[in-house]
Structures are given as structure tokens and as C-alpha cells.
Design a protein around this nucleic acid. Structure first.
Length: 850
RNA sequence: GCGGCUGUGGUGAAAUUGGUAGACACGCUUGAUUUAGGUUCAAGUGCCUUUGGCGUGGGGGUUCAAGUCCCUCCAGCCGCACCA
């Protein structure tokens, strides 16, 4: 009997698939199409178990769709621009381009042995000039349609990476990659007009039924729609009114002061001849913006001396303060303070001795606030005090509506919808990114590059040698020749934009490029309309906002420019966010008591090679720093790709984290070897039919087909695998004849094929099949075989299980009742009592109520 | 603070519409075979004071019947946040 040697089996079938080109995606008029995509990797140089899990899930779907008669597009590429390449060049010398392409070669070589059903002919890297040249073309089209613009703005400056960051890339006041405290700087930058799409990006979320609710909610919160009112407050000195934004106009009676941002034009103007104000503004600008610091930071202010008139109660004059807590970026940069109904305003008012005036009380409890503000409840009714809109006791939601109506009717302000989402700043002061195709000319100003000059390629050399990356900053900016060019408009001497695009731009449209990866235009209409949308997108939850929101914007912008059909404006029909691969952490302590980490492969039975016992820290995401990593390359070498694939799918639901354990991997391998043994035994044996055993085996086969199919279609891979284990046990123990066993073994091979494709091909081959199991038609369960002729019903007495009874599947309810009541155990339990009621749920349960 | 998710054996977990809780796997126990051992095969494994009782984070409720529905509390995780 042949032994299961994974390496031989896997090499053999990968070779056979490649020879027949079976994964090349081809448009086919007579087949439904299916586009499955996993978030493409950054070419760090090594694949990790998270990649294996991600791509295996996609591969299961892709192979299942091939077997169910679809034209499948399952591509792979590289998100190849970005800082690590420049950092590597800085740290170890060399060139980002060489580093990146060599990493891609390494990773491809690690990925191919996994046996993924990828159409490698469509592979590209975002740093290929053929790709980013088309991205530059998109930029020019966006510019023409007003979807990109240039403005002077206060931006997030990362002092370590020496570049600007988008708001989305600042986490807790720190750069998302460098972790450095972000500073605020004023620079001229390019922006995508994503804010034009706020409402659409928000409302379209409702249509994304096959996205995780969590991701939709996160995007909804990020877009941050709020409804309120803009109210001008007239200045007593006759200057331009100060416009405040509020979502609670019903509390306007309680307004006792105005607070404006230090960045507000009024603050700036006043600061010109008020040194103490200028100092205050400078101080707030330096302020630590981390969350923890914000929480602790004192709410500080400074009285400007200005007064404004209350819009509704003109006899009241309100002082104007500059407050360090007022953000210029949100609303109008000015708010009115309502101490009675807002805790922050109350704290501020108490600190600086400002008035507290109620707009409402809780009905029947007229208690003035002292230390705790009376925040308007959402649903409960409140009693408004002599309210300008004429309302008395009502919910604050009604109060808001009435107040907005009042302001609009009296021309005192207007209802206003605001979004938190701001435009996407895309300029980065980096080398290793897509150059922005813009030229600055002294005569013509800002001029778009001509499309025929694209791609504007990154320079590899400076002078005769490769660019020097040893000093920080942007090498394009200090390059001696690259930035000099000819003005596309007047032909005179001009300078190139030296900023490159945020790498999130690269990943915002790669899914569309895969539909026509070699085209001379960003997309090709017939390919895009055939393959788009992505039917199933799979990746990590960490991209819930940035990448997915940007992609949704890009698809819309590409549609406006004619690069995608209207139907592709939501590019991902279904999204699945998979969990991480975790592992226990093994550590010892150094002399100072600091943890020293050890690789799992160096720990045997909780001990190091020298016998030292290790401390075991509970499972966490695999990370190099904690050394709790298992290299897929080693696993594939030891057990084969099928074992790695089977294991990452088997133990946990795909959306949850899965813990990699050596014993689990070992068990997966043993199981595959067992299947190989069982099937090879069946293939070579010749036993006569055994009608009853044959039927029982085939019934379980059909149930297995049914459950595995359902599992694969609903991301229930772990449950599907559990059923396959069960079916393997049934098959191993079955007394059926060889005919039925071969049929069952063939089905087993087919059902395992999406998960363990190499072994499945081998089983299929051993069973004498001549085609590929990969392309064979997916088995279909016979509904008649899914229900047994007799069913075992539990009998409950008052909801407690007391007995079981076997009855024919279509036995009449009253017959079942009779049989149940005649059961020994039931009679014993009843002990002569007369049942009040008997509930029979056909095929499920019998409950006797006494 | 706001919003959301999760809680089931020693472990990972399973359980269409409320209908036999713990499938499947790890681990563990016992036995058989072979062996130096791993391997393979067979049997067992929620808990307890075991003719029975208890059991899906705690408490309460709806129901003939609750892991599943409702209320409430607790714990853990995630997202957002000086957002007016």
C-alpha cells in the first residue's frame, strides 16, 4: 500500500494543474462568473500563518465555485509601495526597488507551494510603472472632474517618518506606522474630495447586506453624520457675526458664553495685538493630542473681551472666550456654552465664574444644577422653561425639531447636516510611492502632466549611482535632475511635484485592475463589466475603515471618469473579515527579570533544549517580537500544504481567532494520512454489496454532501470539516461493499478538494478517475437520502428528557403520542398520573405535560 | 463617555425556525498490536454525594419546552471620542 508522502503528492498535482493551466481566468459567455479576492499582501519577504489562513479561505471558495461551474477570477498581487522599503534602504543600504522585487520573488516562492488556485498570469505589483502609470492617469482624470484639489491646510506631520498623515492614519495622536507623536503643520497638499460623497457613502452602507454589521457600523461612525443648526451671534462691536454650530438648539436658552477655537480667524486676528492671547494659542498648538492627555488636559480658556448678543434673548450679552477644547476642524470652530446641560461647559463656567441658566428641568423636579450638568435624555420628556419655540413638556428630540423650525422661520439660523469625514490628504513626502503627475511652472502655475508622458517614473539613479537613502527626508526633493522638466503647457522650464501618493491610493483600485492587468488604460470596459464586482472579498478587520472606505470612494470616482460601470460603485458585494492566527508565548527571565522569548520550535514539553522550564503566556497574535511565530514554510516542509490548510480551517470559526498548536497540526496530518490509507484500501479491495450497510453509508454520504456544501457556502469551514471527520469515521467502520465504498470515497475526495486539493486529487486518481477532482462537477445531495426511514424521538415529561422512542419517519402524530405513552420509562415516570397535554413535534420531540 | 460584540466541559468548539446541550477535534484514562518509542486499532471521558440530581457568566421572566426570546447585573474584547 502506498504511503502518504505529502511533498510528492503536492508537487505532482501542482505540476499537473500548471501543465493544464486550469486556473487561468477566462471570460465565458455560458458560465456565471465569480470573482474572489483576498486582500493583497505587502511584500515583507516572508509569508506568515495569517496569510495562509486568508488565502486558504479564498481558495476554498474559489475551488468550490470552479466545481460548481463558474468562470472564476482569483488573482494575486503585491501592495508594494511604502515606508518599510525605504527604511530598509536606510538601515541596510541598497535600493527600495531591489529590496521590494526581491521580497516579491521570495514570497511568491513561499506562496506557490500552498497550491492556491490563483491565476498568476494576472499578477502585478503596485510599484510596477505599468500599474502606477495608470494610477497617474486616474489622478489626472479625477483632477479634471474636480475630485482632486490642492489646498493649504493644517496637516498631521509625522516627525519620525517625516511625512504627512491622513486623519485616518493618526491613531491616538500617533502616526499609525511610526508611533511618533503627530505634530500640526501648515502645508500645501493634494486632497481627494471624499467629503462630497459623505451622504452617499453613508446611505449605500444599507445595501451592503453581505458585509459584517460591525464594519458597516464602524464606517457609519467614521462618516459621523449629525444634524443641527448654524446660528450667527452678532458682535456688539459690529464685527462679522460669529457662527456657532450646535446639535442641541433646544438648549439655546441656556447659552451663557461663546467658545471659539484658538485657530478661529477671530482668535488669530485678536492675537495680533494681544500677546497673552498669542501665547495661549501657541501653547494649545503644542498640546499633547493623545487620548490620555486629552482626558486629563485642563479645559482652559481666555476671555477675549468681545461680547455677542443672544439671538433669541436680545437683552442678554454673552462673553466670547477662546477655549482650548474647541476644534477648528469640526463644525464652525465656534460653539456656544450651555453649562446647565453640558458637563464640559459646566466645568468651564465654574472655573471662570460664568452664568448657569437652565433651558429645561426634569418635569416636577426644578433643581438647579451644581456639580453635574442635566444632560437632555433621549426619550424621556423634559419641561422646557419659557421656551422661545413655544414648547413645554416634550422629548428633547421634539424640542430640537421645534427649535430648528423656529430659527429658520425667524431667519436666526439654518438647519445644517454635518459630517465628521474630511477630505483625504494624499500627499506624502516620500520616495517609494506613486509620483503625483503635476508640474509647477513659473509662467503657467500648477499644470497637470500630459497623459502621453505617463508613467512619470521614479528615478533609480542620481548621477551615475543609485539614489542614496542614508539621510532622512524625501530623495526626490533633493534629487539633482529628476524634478527638472518641461512645462506641459508652455514648454518652458518647470519643476515636478516631488510628493508621492499615499500608498492607500494604490490599494483603492487594484481590484479593478485585476480585471485587465495589462491594459493601456486603467480598466477595459468589457473586462470590468464582466468581472466586477468582487463577489467575495476576504481580509482583516483592521481595514474596516481606511482601505474599505477609500476603495468605496475610488470606485465612485472611477465611475464618474468612465472607468467602472455604475453597478461597480460598491466594489465588494460580500466582505468577510477573518480572525487572526494566535500562538502561546514562551518566555524565561533574564537576570533583571525581563522576559526573554523563545520560538515554539525551541520548546519541547514546556522545556528548552538545556532543560530550562519556560513560562507559558496565553495565546496572542503571532508576532516576531514575542517570537510566538510558526513559519508556514517549516510547516509545509514538515507536513505539507494540505495539513497547514486543513488545520487553519478546522479548529475555529473563520471570523474568530484560531490558536495554532503543534498537537493540532500533528493531528491534522495524521487525519490526512488516515484518509489516504482508508481510500487506498478501498480502491484496491473487491467486496460484495451489502444492501443495508450500503444504504446506511450512502445516506451518510448525502448528509455529508449537504452539510459540507452548506458549510462552504456560509463560511462554516470548521463545521464542514467536523462533518468530514465524522464521515471518514463512518466510512472506515462501514461494512458496505466496495461499490458503495468507492462511491463514498469519491464523494469524500470531492468534498475535501477545496480544503486539501492535492490529497483530494491523489484520492481521486487512486479511485481510477481520469479528470481532475478540481474541475469535476460538485456532488449534489439527494434530498430523499437526507431523512432516515425511522427517527429517534426524545420523550420529555414536563420538559425533562425521560426516554427515547424509535418511530417511522412519517408516523401519524396521534400514533406517536400513543406509542410514547405506552413506553415503559414513561409509564414509570407518570406513575399513574394522567397527562394534561401531550405535545408532538413531528421528527423532533414528544413532551408530556402532567 | 458613546456605540458594538462575546461569555457553553480540562482546551478549541458544535447546536436552520425555541425542540435530545457538548457534534467534531485536542488533551486525558484503559486495553490490544507492533515497537526501543512515536505510529495504528478498540473502549471511555460535562459535573456531583449516581435506582438519582445538577449543568450553556450571575439573577429574574415568557413558554409544554430556553444556549437560543425578554429584563437586569457582572466580566472580557473591539471601535469611536474635548464632535459642540
Amino acid at each position: 500500500m502506498a504511503q502518504y508522502v505529502a511533498a510528492d503528492v503536492e508537487q505532482k498535482w501542482q505540476g499537473a494543474w500548471a501543465a493544464e493551466d486550469i486556473f487561468t481566468a477566462t471570460r465565458s459567455p455560458d458560465k456565471p462568473k465569480y470573482y474572489v479576492l483576498e486582500m493583497f499582501p505587502y511584500p515583507s519577504g516572508r509569508i506568515h500563518m495569517g496569510h495562509v489562513r486568508n488565502y486558504t479561505m479564498g481558495d476554498v471558495i474559489a475551488r468550490y465555485k470552479i466545481a460548481t461551474g463558474h468562470a472564476v477570477l482569483h488573482p494575486m498581487g503585491w501592495d508594494a509601495f511604502g515606508m518599510p522599503a525605504e527604511n530598509a534602504a536606510m538601515a541596510i543600504g541598497g535600493h527600495p526597488k531591489d529590496w521590494t522585487y526581491s521580497n516579491i520573488d521570495d514570497m511568491r516562492a513561499q506562496m506557490k507551494p500552498l497550491g492556491l488556485s490563483i491565476d498568476w498570469s494576472r499578477e502585478f505589483a503596485t510599484c510596477d510603472p505599468e500599474y502606477y502609470g495608470q494610477q497617474q492617469a486616474l489622478f489626472l482624470d479625477f483632477l479634471e472632474k474636480g475630485l482632486v484639489y490642492r489646498k493649504n491646510a493644517v496637516v498631521n506631520w509625522d516627525p519620525v517618518d517625516m511625512t504627512v498623515l491622513a486623519n485616518e492614519q493618526v491613531i491616538d495622536g500617533k502616526g499609525w506606522r511610526s508611533g511618533a507623536e503627530v505634530e500640526r503643520r501648515e502645508l500645501t497638499q493634494w486632497f481627494f474630495k471624499i467629503s462630497d460623497f459623505s451622504e452617499e457613502l453613508l446611505t449605500a452602507l444599507d445595501q451592503l447586506d453581505n458585509w459584517p454589521a460591525k464594519v458597516r457600523l464602524m464606517q457609519e461612525n467614521w462618516i459621523g453624520k449629525s444634524r443641527g443648526i448654524e446660528v450667527p451671534f452678532n458682535r456688539m462691536d459690529g464685527g462679522d457675526p460669529i457662527i456657532c454650530y450646535s446639535t442641541r438648539p433646544d438648549t439655546m436658552r441656556g447659552a451663557t458664553f461663546l467658545a471659539i477655537s484658538p485657530e478661529h480667524p477671530v482668535s488669530r486676528t485678536l492675537a495680533e495685538d494681544r500677546p497673552e492671547l498669542a501665547a495661549f494659542i501657541a501653547e494649545t498648538r503644542k498640546m499633547d493630542t493623545t487620548e490620555a492627555a486629552m482626558e486629563k488636559a485642563e479645559k482652559k480658556g481666555i476671555d477675549t473681551g468681545l461680547k455677542v448678543r443672544h439671538p433669541v434673548y436680545p437683552d442678554r450679552e454673552l462673553p466670547v472666550w477662546v477655549g482650548n477644547f474647541v476644534l477648528m476642524e469640526y463644525g464652525t470652530g465656534a460653539v456656544y456654552g450651555c453649562p446647565a446641560h453640558d458637563q464640559r461647559d459646566l466645568d468651564f463656567a465654574k472655573k471662570y465664574g460664568l452664568d448657569v441658566t437652565h433651558a429645561f428641568f426634569m418635569p416636577g423636579e426644578e433643581v438647579e444644577v451644581t456639580d453635574t450638568a442635566l444632560v437632555p435624555p433621549k426619550t424621556e420628556k423634559v419641561a422646557y422653561v419659557e421656551h422661545f419655540a413655544g414648547i413645554g413638556e416634550c422629548s428633547s428630540l421634539e424640542g430640537i425639531d421645534a427649535s430648528i423650525d423656529y430659527f429658520e422661520a425667524h431667519d436666526l439660523g439654518r438647519g445644517q447636516v454635518k459630517y465628521r469625514l474630511r477630505d483625504w490628504g494624499l500627499s506624502r513626502q516620500r520616495y517609494w510611492g506613486c509620483p503625483i503627475p503635476i508640474v509647477y511652472c513659473d509662467t503657467c502655475g500648477v499644470v497637470p502632466e500630459k497623459k502621453e508622458n505617463l508613467p512619470i517614473e521614479l528615478p533609480y539613479d542620481e548621477g551615475n549611482k543609485p539614489i542614496d537613502f542614508s539621510q532622512p527626508g524625501n530623495p526626490l526633493d533633493r534629487h539633482s535632475t529628476w524634478r527638472n522638466c518641461e512645462c506641459p503647457s508652455c514648454g518652458g522650464p518647470a519643476r515636478r511635484e516631488t510628493d508621492t501618493m499615499d500608498t492607500f491610493v494604490d490599494s483603492s483600485w487594484y481590484y479593478a485592475r485585476f480585471t485587465a492587468p495589462r491594459a493601456e488604460t486603467p480598466t477595459v470596459a468589457e473586462d470590468a463589466s464582466y468581472w466586477m464586482n468582487v463577489d467575495q472579498y476576504i481580509g482583516g478587520i483592521e481595514h474596516a475603515i481606511l482601505h474599505l472606505l477609500y476603495s468605496r470612494f475610488f470606485a465612485r470616482a472611477m465611475h464618474i471618469c468612465g472607468h467602472l460601470p455604475k453597478s461597480a460603485t460598491e466594489p465588494f458585494d460580500a466582505l468577510f473579515t477573518q480572525g487572526m492566527v494566535t500562538h502561546e508565548i514562551y518566555q524565561t527571565r533574564d537576570a533583571a527579570g525581563r522576559p526573554v522569548y523563545h520560538l515554539p520550535e525551541d520548546v519541547v514539553d514546556g522545556k528548552l533544549a538545556d532543560g530550562t522550564e519556560v513560562e507559558i503566556v496565553p495565546s496572542a497574535k503571532m508576532s516576531k517580537s514575542k517570537k510566538n511565530v510558526v513559519d508556514p514554510v517549516n510547516i509545509v516542509a514538515a507536513y505539507g500544504a494540505d495539513t497547514a490548510r486543513w488545520f487553519v480551517l478546522s479548529d475555529s470559526p473563520p471570523e474568530r481567532d484560531v490558536e495554532w498548536t503543534a498537537s493540532g497540526a500533528e493531528a491534522a496530518f495524521k487525519h490526512l494520512a488516515r484518509v489516504h490509507r482508508i481510500v487506498s484500501d478501498i480502491a484496491t479491495s473487491d467486496l460484495p454489496d451489502v444492501p443495508e450497510a450500503d444504504l446506511a453509508l450512502l445516506r451518510d454520504m448525502h448528509k455529508t454532501i449537504h452539510e459540507v456544501t452548506g458549510g462552504v457556502e456560509s463560511f462554516g469551514f470548521n463545521a464542514a470539516i467536523a462533518k468530514l471527520y465524522g464521515f471518514t469515521n463512518t466510512l472506515a467502520k462501514s461494512k458496505a461493499g466496495s461499490g458503495a465504498k468507492r462511491e463514498a470515497a469519491s464523494a469524500l475526495a470531492q468534498l475535501m478538494a477545496p480544503m486539501t486539493p492535492h490529497l483530494a486529487e491523489e484520492l481521486w486518481y487512486m479511485l481510477g478517475q481520469e479528470d481532475f477532482v478540481t474541475t469535476a462537477n460538485w456532488p449534489v445531495a439527494d434530498p430523499n437520502m437526507l431523512i432516515d426511514d425511522t427517527v429517534t424521538l426524545p420523550i420529555q415529561i414536563n420538559g425533562k428528557r425521560r426516554a427515547e422512542i424509535a418511530v417511522p419517519k412519517d408516523m401519524d402524530k396521534s400514533e406517536v403520542e400513543k406509542a410514547a405513552l405506552a413506553h415503559d420509562a414513561v409509564l414509570r415516570s407518570l406513575d399513574g398520573a394522567v397527562p394534561k397535554k401531550v405535545i408532538v413535534v413531528p421528527g423532533r420531540i414528544v413532551n408530556v405535560v402532567v
